[in-house]
């Protein structure tokens, strides 16, 4: 069981949240100009790193707000929690970015 620290409500059980997939996947600037391959890339292709992963969560049983979490997919350790207005934290990225160790 994860204990996620909602930016607005504080620490709550994982059961109060829903998962929203990878964070920082922007909607294409000009969707109509994309090829089918690029559109499929945007819709369906997501990273699957072994290590820190920035992902979206919503506190559906609480304040119903979306926020981002950096979670280590190997240990389930939550490395950072931040809102959409916060910059993406450097924690877990940088030296380790880009894949398995």
């Amino acid at each position: 069981m994860l204990l996620l620290n909602c930016p607005w409500c504080g620490p709550r059980d994982e059961t109060e949240y829903h998962y929203g997939g990878q964070a920082h996947v922007p909607y294409p600037e000009e969707p109509s100009t994309l090829t089918d391959e690029e559109w499929a890339e945007y819709l369906f292709f997501r990273d699957n790193p072994c290590g820190p992963f920035a992902e979206r969560w919503v506190h559906s049983a609480g304040c119903r707000r979306w926020f981002n979490v950096v979670r280590d997919t190997r240990t389930y350790q939550v490395l950072a929690v931040y809102t959409h207005s916060d910059p993406r934290p450097a924690v877990g990225f940088g030296a380790q970015a880009g894949g398995p160790r």
């Binding site: 409500c9 709550r12 059961t15 109060e16 559906s60 049983a61 609480g62 304040c63």
Partner: peptide
């Protein structure tokens, strides 16, 4: 007062 779940129900 908090918004939470009881017996899986919000």
């Amino acid at each position: 007062a908090v918004s939470t779940t009881l017996a899986r129900v919000p």
